[in-house]
Amino acid sequence: MSLDFTSSEMMSVTAARALNNDMTCFVGIGLPSEAANLARLTHAPDITLIYESGTLQTRPDVLPLSIGDGDLCESALTTVSVPEMFRYWLQGGHISVGFLGTAQIDRYANLNTTLIGDYRAPKVRLPGGGGAPEIATNAKEVFITLKHSKRTFVKDVDFLTTVGFGRDGKARDNLPNIGRGPTVVITDLCILKPDPESKELVVHQLHPGVTREDVINATGWEIRFADELGTTPAPTAEELEVLRNLKARTAAHHAGQH
């Protein structure tokens, strides 16, 4: 019998599976944090999670609302200052995976979290870069997770906040000290990976029940599919149970603090 699950759950479970026990993961807030903690509570109990607030090797019981909730600090091995976090631990080369969310992504996996429209007269002002610009270049590789739609998957980002492979796919070429960049993008429809040569994102796996047309209709450029297109395994009962419990615990915790 197959289990019932939502496309959001499919996305979180798939993103969690991208992580393993040996990784030191710099975790962005929101979807990446949900996936990283799901990984820690299922198949990767010893994964090292690091948040930009300086909390090293943290094991929160509920998902933090902010990057600096008290639970992150109290459950961490240690907490360092923000300059130390970015200079020694990130720039110093101790992070294997940077896990990021974004508002917009383009075909070369460049991220926009700054604004929609013109810089001096924005149509929609977004929060800005935060930790992402340097996480994306100083981590050894980058995982990205976001919901798939024509609004989020655009041919060229309005503003390039955080580099994937640049406007031409070549931004990382010939630089002496830079990570591999985005190696996987996980959405609620599919898994994409950059083409080894051109660096353009290509669909490698469709989630169960998702068609090529679904992805084409939700992507703002002529999306390509890998020759051997796979199907992502559905979530297991255990993955769904742990995820749902985590989210229920989180909702109760954040609602009950007034």
């Binding site: 300059p83 970015f86 200079r87 720039q91 610009p133 340097e134 270049t137 390039l160 906040t161 931004a171």
Partner: peptide, 20 residues
């Protein structure tokens, strides 16, 4: 950090490829 150290500027491996 540079401000606290009395320096006029800070150096970092940053902003690669960014529009910022």
């Amino acid at each position: 950090d540079a401000g606290a150290a009395g320096l006029p500027f800070a150096v970092l491996r940053g902003y690669i490829g960014s529009d910022l």
